[in-house]
């Protein structure tokens, strides 16, 4: 198995509070991996370590065999595209302005002509050509998220890391985005995402990981064990439903399952 990201003995704490404890995990290249876990379980911290935004941790994070700390900003930008959980801009930038910032590591003090051509290409790939001159703060949440994904594609990274990409999206955009992520993997990229919706994740992703007790545990193979794992992570019962070859995982409320 070719490893896109390989983490050994990663520990991190904020002051006295331990966030991650000896995490050992690797994410396969050219796969769509999803990390599931509850709020505050350390998922975002782990992702920040993976993208080189976190410092002060113990252990080693390797991107395709090279420690992330020894990569320059520019090298990192061409390997990894990262969609942070929070971003906001109060200024009326156009979608084109936002996309061009994705070229920051490569184009120095001004975007080049080919960057503009790349904007056209990325917008076409995402089917968002009509948004090019629109003002970013006036777009819907789903459109904004797609633009930020486009910004990440401007870097043309091999590995795409997303922190809760479907948050605040309506059902249409949730599926639109998941389909795009799946298409990225088919193009040969690697996608790793934190998600909060197991049902959605199980419909689209290839590999599953769970955040449990400050550690990352890979999914187990059989269906029953998987349901137990989900219950251990979310303290909620889960159900498997099969419908015309489609396997759906659903959370069910306490006491509903007899």
């Amino acid at each position: 198995m070719e490893k896109a990201i390989d983490i050994t003995d990663l520990s991190f704490s904020y002051g006295r509070q331990s966030i991650l404890r000896e995490v050992n995990v690797s994410f396969a290249a050219h796969r769509f991996s999803v990390l599931l876990g509850t709020n505050g379980s350390g998922k975002s911290t782990l992702f920040k370590a993976m993208t080189g935004l976190l410092s002060g941790y113990e252990g080693i994070v390797k991107i395709k065999g090279t420690p992330v700390r020894s990569l320059t900003h520019k090298q990192r930008a061409s390997q990894i595209g990262y969609l942070p959980q929070f971003y906001q801009t109060v200024f009326p930038f156009t979608v084109e302005d936002i996309l061009l910032t994705g070229r920051a590591a490569f184009s120095g003090f001004a975007p080049a002509k080919r960057d503009r051509a790349l904007v056209t290409q990325v917008l076409a790939e995402l089917g968002l050509e009509r948004l090019r001159q629109k003002l970013f703060p006036e777009l819907s949440g789903g459109e904004q998220q797609m633009v930020m994904i486009g910004r990440l594609l401007m870097q043309d990274p091999e590995i795409i890391i997303l922190d809760e990409p479907t948050n605040h999206l309506d059902v249409y955009y949730q599926h639109f985005l998941m389909n795009k992520l799946k298409a990225f993997v088919e193009e040969g990229r690697t996608v790793i995402a934190i998600m909060h919706n197991p049902t959605l994740a199980y419909q689209f992703a290839d590999d599953f990981f769970f955040m449990l007790d400050k550690m990352v545990v890979p999914a187990v193979s059989t269906a029953e064990q998987e349901l137990e794992m989900l219950k251990a992570v979310y303290h909620t019962d889960f159900l498997h439903i099969s419908h015309e070859g489609l396997k759906i995982v659903l959370p069910v409320g306490e006491g509903m399952l007899k």
Partner: peptide, 18 residues
């Protein structure tokens, strides 16, 4: 132009390799 990048926030700037 760098100011455009900075005005999207620290994490967004770091994510693009700046």
């Amino acid at each position: 132009w760098r100011l455009n990048i900075l005005s999207l926030g620290d994490d967004a700037a770091k994510a693009t390799g700046v």
